[in-house]
Simulated assay, not measured.
Amino acid sequence: MSASRTERTGWPLLTVLAVTLAVLVLIAAGSGQLSVPPSEVLGSILHRLGIELGPMPSHPQGDNALWTIRFPRIALAVVVGASLAVAGVLLQGVFGNPLAEPAVIGVSSGAAVGACAVIVAGVSALGNFTVAAAAFLGGLLTTMLVYLLSRSGGRTEVITLVLTGIAVNAFAMGVIAFLTFVADPQAREQIVFWQLGSLNGATAPAVGAVVPLAAAGLVIAVTMARRLDLLALGEGPAQHLGVNVERLRLIVVVAVALLVGSGVAFAGIVGFVGLVVPHLIRMIAGPAHHRLVLASALGGAVVLVGADLLARTAVEHAELPLGMLTSLVGGPFFFWLLRRTRARQGGWA
Rank of each mutant, 00 (worst) to 15 (best):
S2W: 05
A3D: 15
A3Q: 14
T9A: 11
T9H: 07
L13H: 05
L14Q: 04
L14E: 06
L14C: 14
T15A: 15
V16E: 06
V19P: 04
V23F: 05
S35C: 07
V36A: 09
V36L: 08
P37W: 00
V41G: 09
V41D: 10
G43H: 02
L46Y: 00
H47L: 12
H47F: 01
L53S: 14
P55V: 06
P57G: 10
S58Y: 00
N64W: 08
L66N: 04
R70E: 13
F71E: 15
P72W: 00
I74A: 10
A75S: 13
A75H: 00
L76K: 00
A77C: 14
L84Q: 01
A85L: 03
G88Y: 01
Q92F: 05
F95P: 08
N97F: 07
N97G: 08
P98Y: 02
A100V: 13
V104G: 04
I105T: 08
A115G: 11
G122R: 02
V123Y: 02
V123Q: 07
V123I: 13
S124F: 10
F129Q: 10
A132W: 04
A134Y: 03
F136D: 06
L137E: 08
L145E: 10
Y147M: 13
S152R: 06
G153C: 03
R155D: 07
R155K: 09
R155E: 06
R155H: 05
E157C: 03
I159K: 01
V162E: 07
L163R: 01
T164M: 05
I166Q: 04
I166W: 02
A172N: 06
G174N: 03
V182D: 09
A183N: 05
Q186W: 00
A187N: 05
E189R: 10
Q190C: 14
F193I: 15
L199M: 15
L199N: 06
L199W: 06
N200W: 11
G201C: 14
A202P: 11
T203S: 13
V207M: 08
V210E: 06
V211D: 02
L213I: 10
G217I: 09
L218T: 11
I220Q: 13
M224D: 10
R226G: 12
A238C: 11
Q239D: 13
G242W: 01
R247C: 14
V254F: 08
L259R: 04
F266Y: 15
V270T: 08
F272C: 12
V273S: 04
V276T: 11
V277T: 10
P278Q: 04
I281Q: 04
I281P: 05
A288H: 15
H289N: 14
R291A: 12
V293K: 04
L294G: 11
A295Y: 05
G299A: 07
G300R: 03
V302T: 07
V303T: 13
V305I: 13
P321D: 05
L322W: 05
L322E: 03
L325I: 15
L328T: 07
G330I: 11
T341H: 03
A343P: 10
G347Y: 09
